[in-house]
Simulated assay, not measured.
Amino acid sequence: MTSGITFDRLPELAAQFHLCFRSGHIYLEGQRMVLLHTGALGALRRELVDTLGLDRTRGVLTRMGYASGKRDAEMARELLPRASDEDLMNLGPQLHSLEGIAHVTPIRFDIDVAGGRYSGEFLWEDSFEAAVHLEAFGPYHDAVCWMQLGYATGYTTAIMGKSVIFREVDCRGKGDTNCRIVGKPVEDWGEEITEELQYFEPENVAEQLVALQDQVEHLRYSIDEQTNLGDMVGVSPAFRETGEIIRKAA
């Protein structure tokens, strides 16, 4: 069944926000939340890019968004235990808007959880993530709403009970007017999403760093062995100075 998104539950969702000033807690439907400045999130993105590079940063933020979307889907099922597939999918964009991520406008979506069928297309207006990326790095050649893509993928995958992947086909971060995403099950994408799938797989950066360190040490020992003075032995200052010059030159 093809359906449109309504925002009739926004007042009900907003009523689930509870601010506890004494304890310093913010709750949404019993789930603890935090408020962060977008400037702080932009600084975090820059720090991650400087430390890990763009590609690994994309993976970290995509998986972070995925976990958030999955948790919101679980919350939606608790909030609407008897909801239809359409109602549950309606709730995701409303949560996205309520949490200040972006204003979501539906273009189309078709969902049948029992039949394993899904396709959707949504417009994101005023995406916070595109804004912080532009502020930190300027225009990029590719889409940059990595957390939001992870969120949409995590939310829809949890609702469907099967992997549904979204791609950002338009993005303000690369000069488009607004951001637009398209989603469908992994098997329906085929080889088109080979690159996207890697960002949902965690990388063990620590192991890679240890391996690189081992390679550097091995290379250092190899250079030392190749630059010794063989069987020559000398103790005079001139001999030792010449040997040192040879090693440095090598």
Rank of each mutant, 00 (worst) to 15 (best):
128 F>K: 08
191 E>N: 12
88 L>M: 07
115 G>P: 10
169 V>H: 04
111 I>E: 05
70 K>Y: 07
138 G>P: 06
123 L>G: 01
107 I>T: 10
82 R>W: 00
185 P>A: 14
192 E>G: 06
188 D>H: 15
120 G>C: 04
85 D>K: 05
155 Y>K: 12
147 M>N: 05
148 Q>I: 08
115 G>Q: 14
157 T>Y: 08
145 C>M: 10
97 S>M: 07
170 D>W: 03
174 K>R: 15
101 I>S: 01
193 I>T: 13
98 L>V: 06
180 R>K: 14
112 D>S: 12
74 E>V: 13
126 D>M: 11
93 P>H: 03
198 Q>N: 12
194 T>I: 10
107 I>P: 00
134 L>D: 00
145 C>Y: 05
118 Y>I: 08
187 E>I: 06
137 F>D: 11
158 A>W: 03
78 E>Y: 00
190 G>E: 11
176 D>C: 14
189 W>I: 11
145 C>D: 13
165 I>D: 02
103 H>R: 07
138 G>R: 11
155 Y>E: 09
189 W>E: 10
99 E>Y: 14
158 A>I: 02
180 R>Y: 04
121 E>V: 09
92 G>S: 05
151 Y>V: 06
165 I>L: 14
167 R>I: 14
84 S>F: 12
140 Y>F: 06
163 S>V: 05
170 D>F: 07
201 E>P: 03
114 A>Y: 00
185 P>C: 12
124 W>Y: 14
153 T>C: 08
154 G>V: 01
179 C>Y: 01
158 A>H: 07
100 G>P: 09
83 A>T: 00
105 T>G: 04
103 H>G: 02
151 Y>C: 01
189 W>P: 07
98 L>Y: 01
152 A>Q: 10
197 L>D: 05
80 L>F: 06
152 A>T: 09
166 F>S: 10
182 V>F: 06
161 G>H: 09
122 F>Q: 02
141 H>S: 09
199 Y>P: 03
192 E>L: 12
103 H>F: 09
79 L>R: 00
199 Y>A: 08
165 I>H: 03
110 D>T: 14
86 E>T: 07
163 S>F: 04
93 P>V: 05
101 I>R: 01
195 E>V: 15
156 T>P: 09
190 G>N: 11
153 T>Q: 06
127 S>P: 00
173 G>M: 10
98 L>W: 00
82 R>P: 00
195 E>A: 14
119 S>I: 00
